[in-house]
Nucleic acid binder design. Structure first.
Length: 665
DNA sequence: TGGTGGGTTGTGTAT
DNA sequence: CATACACAACCCACC
């Protein structure tokens, strides 16, 4: 029998340390070992990925590639410019592959893709080895012991985890790697032909990462660059890569007081340079840091301190607790699949008649990526929120930090998410999740969706009367307003007294501070004076409206998979004068508006109100059909050759970003 | 089974 | 300055 020839497929496990899948591959003692990455058009075109997260990915890939080369000068991370579903069957033959090995992936899209790949491997006679390593416990195992149900609380996750068993111990980092085999590739590249490009807004130039063949412009399987993606340089100061994060982790662990007594709710969302938490989340996302390694290392310190009778923190607030929450969201996603990422047809997400609800393809039961503009004014609110121009300095500082740096503190996320949804604008959490998906370097579909549901009180959490104030909450952490002055420089001269509510500053004080508080965020200057917008609404008024509506929605008690939601008759239950879609005339089944199934996306029964974003938009709310993916996108949009879906309408839409850019000029 | 206490991360006021 | 409580009332685990 001939020796194994192994294709090791790196995905979100961009590391050499503590990788059960990598160990399984090396245990085969292969005669040829190909560490590869498939440059997936799902990621390039069909997921919302801004330059900051792309750069972070590229950093991780380059670092890993160098680490591989250090172990074997003939090897590297071979980046192949083609999606896996078309590429791998060809590679199996070209490189005479006997084994395909990868770490188990968890989100709905990846599961579909991997199922296809495993079928292709079976047909090609290639043995597939899959190991879990992305979460503390295998999420499918957690779901199984939780009776198939999603883990909706941390206690459920802990109970299920205990039943699954001990968290796997750390796997040794390889000290050497086998040679790759022959690298000749006499195969035709199947170039993805995207029908639309979700990241067009981020590109100054043409996207060319596929145009120079499978091995890239220098024929050396190099990692693509942002330039090739046609993107502007990243603006985030945070860098990716296993080497960097292992050093970061060392310094975190060296501070045993910090590590051992960490309590998340006591860390400040307003701290910058340095931040109050450890910035490991993007590394956990890309797998440049193993969550299990992190967990065991922290636990060692906690146990050591416990023995020494030193103070320690425990889940859920401790560092290990944060990793448990991550597992909770992963297992919830594993149970619910695509429906986890949306309200419609989600058995565990409360139905609340938010503004700007997602459009739904009723034949598939999945969101289309578009949304209904039930009220142009709410569209303006969404844009102002997304661009940090709400007129609430605390909110704006956070949103600008997010856009610039790609990372904000967890409590800052709470504050802005509450503000957009149940505690302010009453806009669908799905809109907020999309903006975070674009901008966060640590965007993890399961965690992002889960946290948005949490904050909007649609799942995981329900105490909607606990409402964050855009003024009081910020003051608690940043009484002096330094965080605001850092990210909202218009206000850097504003005295402490008015920094959280600059519109309350008398005009003389505004002049002295070198800023005028005026308008709605469209002008940067008025008559040569720097301008900062007035608040986009009266917060106490909006809070009261939201509380009232949340109470009503809870009383009605519908979930996303309720028959009344699925067929649109939910409106009858909300006939008591709530605004927007709850008035009952607008929107199609589900009240979430309908996108006719497969091609073109014409409305089935939308009234003319439903689609004014397509025709002539109101002056205030230029169309913003941000052709969004859910983090768990609909099936037809995958790289799958099975289905193609027209997306012309969304494609031709300008985006949130575009319309704001135009105004800025 | 129904009552009860707790729930990583609210606010404003009173003591 | 810290602590307690009302606010109006949620879900859920557990006894």
């Amino acid at each position: 029998m001939s020796k194994p020839r192994v294709l090791y497929w790196f995905r979100t496990d961009l590391r050499l340390h503590d990788s059960p899948a990598l160990k399984a591959a090396l245990d085969l003692k292969p005669e040829a070992f190909y560490p590869i990455w498939c440059w997936d058009s799902h990621y390039v075109y069909h997921s919302r990925v801004g330059p900051n997260r792309f750069q972070f990915l590229i950093d991780c890939q380059n670092d890993l590639s160098q680490s591989i080369t250090k172990l074997n000068k003939n090897s590297k991370l071979f980046v192949l410019r083609e999606p896996a579903v078309t590429l791998l069957p060809k590679l199996f033959k070209a490189w005479k592959i006997s084994h395909l090995v990868f770490e188990k992936d968890t989100d709905a899209y990846a599961k579909d893709r991997d199922a296809q790949i495993m079928e292709q491997a079976r047909k090609a006679g290639v043995e597939v080895i899959v190991r879990s390593g992305r979460t503390l416990w295998d999420s499918d195992e957690v779901v199984k012991v939780n009776k198939g149900k999603p883990t909706m609380s941390i206690s459920q996750l802990q109970a299920a985890g205990a039943k699954v068993g001990e968290i796997e111990p750390v796997v040794e980092t390889p000290k050497s790697l086998p040679d790759p085999g022959d690298l000749e590739l006499d195969i035709e590249q199947t170039q993805p032909k995207p029908d639309w490009d979700m990241n067009e807004q981020f590109r100054d130039a043409k996207e060319t990462s596929y145009s120079s063949g499978i091995a890239g412009p220098n024929n050396d399987f190099a990692v693509p660059t942002l330039e090739e993606l046609g993107m502007k340089p990243a603006t985030s100061p945070h860098k990716g890569g296993e080497t960097i994060v292992l050093k970061m982790l060392d310094s975190i662990l060296a501070d045993e007081d910090y590590t051992g007594t960490f309590e998340k709710p006591k860390t400040s969302p307003a701290a910058f340079e340095p931040q109050s938490t450890c910035l490991t989340s993007p590394h956990l996302h890309f797998g440049s840091l193993s969550c299990r390694y992190f967990y065991h290392k922290v636990l060692e310190i906690v146990e050591k301190r416990r023995k020494a009778k030193q103070s320690v923190s425990d889940p859920p607030t401790s560092l290990t607790g944060q990793l448990l929450f991550r597992d909770m969201y992963f297992a919830a996603q594993a149970s619910l699949g695509y429906s986890f990422g949306q309200t419609y047809n989600n058995s565990h997400c409360r139905f609340i008649p938010w503004h700007l609800p997602s459009k739904v393809d009723v034949t598939s039961g999945l969101v289309t990526g578009g949304y209904e503009v039930d009220d142009p004014g709410k569209e303006v609110w969404l844009k102002r929120w997304a661009h940090g121009k709400t007129g609430f300095p605390w909110i704006d500082a956070i949103m600008r930090q997010l856009r610039q740096e790609g990372w904000i503190h967890h409590l800052a996320r709470h504050s802005v998410a509450c503000f957009l949804t149940r505690g302010g604008a009453y806009i669908s959490w799905e809109r907020g999740a999309e903006v975070f998906e674009e901008l966060l370097i640590d965007h993890e579909a399961a965690c992002n969706i889960g946290n948005w549901q949490w904050l909007s009180c649609t799942a995981f959490f329900s105490q909607f009367f606990r409402c964050y104030s855009p003024v009081a909450f910020g003051k608690k952490w940043d009484d002096n307003g330094d965080f605001i002055r850092r990210y909202v420089p218009e206000l850097k001269g504003m005295p402490k007294k008015y920094i959280f509510e600059p519109h309350k500053a008398p005009i003389q004080d505004q002049k002295k501070a070198g800023v005028v508080i005026k308008g709605d965020g469209e002008e940067a200057e008025i008559d040569g004076v720097v301008c900062y917008p007035k608040p986009m609404f009266d917060f106490p008024t909006q809070r009261d409206i939201c509380l009232e509506r949340m109470k009503n929605a809870y009383r009605v008690g519908l979930y996303g998979n309720d028959a009344k939601v699925l067929d649109g008759t939910w409106k009858k239950a909300f006939a008591d004068g709530a605004e927007g879609p709850t008035e009952g005339k607008k929107g199609g089944p589900g009240g979430l508006s309908v996108c006719e199934d497969t091609d073109g996306g014409e409305e089935v029964n939308g009234s003319d109100e439903v689609n004014h974003d397509v025709t002539s938009p109101p002056a205030k709310a230029k169309k913003a059909q941000a052709g969004g993916s859910r983090a768990t996108p609909m099936k037809g949009q995958s790289d799958s050759p099975r289905v193609t879906r027209g997306h012309k309408r969304e494609h031709s839409q300008s985006t949130l970003e575009d319309s704001f850019k135009k105004k800025a000029k």
